[in-house]
């Protein structure tokens, strides 16, 4: 909506006010992300500008053995496992939902995506009592199961969306050519739904990698994940070490964003092709 050449001065004024405010809103969105990066290279111990000097001491701190590395290690154990479980369960369920009509389908779909809707603190308290009863409190297993629950709706939704345009007659065609159902699934179905699985998986991974509330309730200091370490760092002693870890997390989210964009463009291209 470029400005037409015949625009009146008032229209021109409005146009630039509109553009200007949109610019400010974009600045509001992006500034916090970028403001924190330079602070991680500060040689001082306060998170204020101007920087007293350049140093990598805060990266040294987070990358040397200690609570930061411990919590990063824990997150790198929990998040991939939870993502894998969520992708497996979620994909199977999404295929099942699209394979045939059966009674109660709407209700089941609602059940599968409900973890996305229920306030986190309620999930956390519920699981806290449940895991205490079955002995999974303060365990990696409990944390992985909890994060699987939180990640699964994303996989169900994205794979479900990918399957909307999927022609299940292809499975019949595969079977009629003599392939076993498992072979049909891996050679015919899977390649077509992989983008949905991956983007759902990325959502699930990001969820686990950024989840504080449930982990605060069900994990002991031994299983302390990176978000909990960040949380207590921000609350108790906000230092440039947090900015350093934040910079690494921003890098990670940039990677996630690029992957998602790539997947989106690929699926658009495939849709556009006849």
């Amino acid at each position: 909506m470029a400005l037409p050449p015949y625009a009146s001065p008032v229209e021109k004024l409005w146009f630039w006010i509109f553009r200007g405010s949109c610019g400010l809103i974009l600045l509001f969105l992006i500034a916090p992300v970028f403001v924190i990066i330079p602070l991680s290279f500060s040689s001082g111990s306060f998170l204020t500008y101007p920087l007293p000097g350049f140093s990598l001491r805060w990266y040294e701190e987070i990358f040397s053995a200690g609570p930061w590395m411990e919590s990063l290690k824990n997150s790198l154990i929990v998040a991939p496992l939870a993502t894998l479980l969520a992708m497996t369960f979620g994909t199977l369920a999404a295929v099942g939902l699209n394979r045939a009509d059966f009674p109660g389908k709407g209700l089941i779909l609602a059940l599968l995506i409900s973890p996305m809707v229920v306030p986190l603190v309620i999930v956390a308290v519920g699981m806290y009592f449940f895991f205490a009863q079955v002995g999974l409190l303060n365990s990696y297993t409990g944390l992985v199961l909890a994060h699987t629950v939180l990640g699964v709706p994303f996989v169900v939704i994205t794979v479900n969306a990918t399957l909307q345009g999927f022609d299940f007659n292809q499975m019949r065609a595969g079977a009629s050519l003599g392939a076993s159902p498992i072979r049909v699934f891996f050679t015919v179905v899977l390649p077509q739904i992989v983008p949905g699985m991956v983007s759902g998986g990325l959502f699930a991974f990001a969820t686990s990698f950024d989840e504080v509330v449930v982990a605060l309730f069900i994990a002991s200091p031994t299983e302390r994940t990176l978000p909990i370490q960040m949380f207590s760092g921000i609350r108790e002693n906000i230092s440039p070490a947090i900015a350093a870890m934040a910079t690494i997390l921003i890098l990670l989210s940039t990677l996630l964003l690029i992957t998602m964009e790539f997947l989106r463009r690929r699926s658009e291209r495939l849709k556009a092709a006849p």
Binding site: P32, A206, V212, M230, I250, S253, L257
Partner: peptide, 18 residues
């Protein structure tokens, strides 16, 4: 989308700093 994908804790910390 970049803030959308960025950790909630990172953004909260950034606001405290700002």
């Amino acid at each position: 989308l970049l803030p959308f994908w960025t950790s909630l804790l990172v953004r909260t910390a950034a606001w405290i700093i700002l």
